[in-house]
Amino acid sequence: MTGQTHSPIIEVAGRGLAPIIQLIGIYVFFHGHYGPGGGFQGGVLLAAGVLLLRMTVGAENSQAHVAAKRTLTNCAIGAVIFVGTGIVAILGGGYFLDYAHLPVQWLEPAYMRYYGILFVELGITLGVMTGLITIYDDILEVDYA
C-alpha cells in the first residue's frame, strides 16, 4: 500500500480522480455559506484526494503533492489562523472570537462576521486536511525525512 501499484488502470484512475475530488473539496468549502458544506467537509475532501494519490501512485511519488514532513506544521498553521483570529478580537477590545471587533472597521458588523466566518473556515480547512493526512502517514509510517 505504501508502494506504487503495478496496475496502470488504478494509477491512471487515481491520478485522474484526485484533482476532481480536490476541486469538489474547494467548491464545497466556498459553498458552505449557502448550502451544506463548509470548512470541515471541504478539508476532508481535500484530504481524501491526497490520500487517494498516496494509495495509488505510492507514498514516495505523492510527496511532491503534499510532503509528509510539512503536514504537521501546516495543521498547526491552520489552528493558529483560528486561534489568532480570536486573540486579535481580544486585542481589538472585544470578547474572544468576537468578529465584530476585528480591526477592519470599514465593514459593517454583519459583513465582518461574514468574512470572519470565511477566514476562520479557511483555517479549519487547512488544519483538517493536513491533520488527517498526518494521521494516515503516521499509521502507515510514510517516510518523511
Partner: peptide, 22 residues
C-alpha cells in the same frame, strides 16, 4: 444535510481508509 454530508465523507471515506491502513 450538513451532518449527513460530513458523515458520508468521513464515515465512508476517511475512517474506511484508516481502517484499511491499520
Amino acid at each position: 444535510v450538513d451532518v449527513g454530508f460530513t458523515e458520508a465523507v468521513v464515515g465512508a471515506g476517511i475512517v474506511g481508509i484508516y481502517f484499511v491502513a491499520a
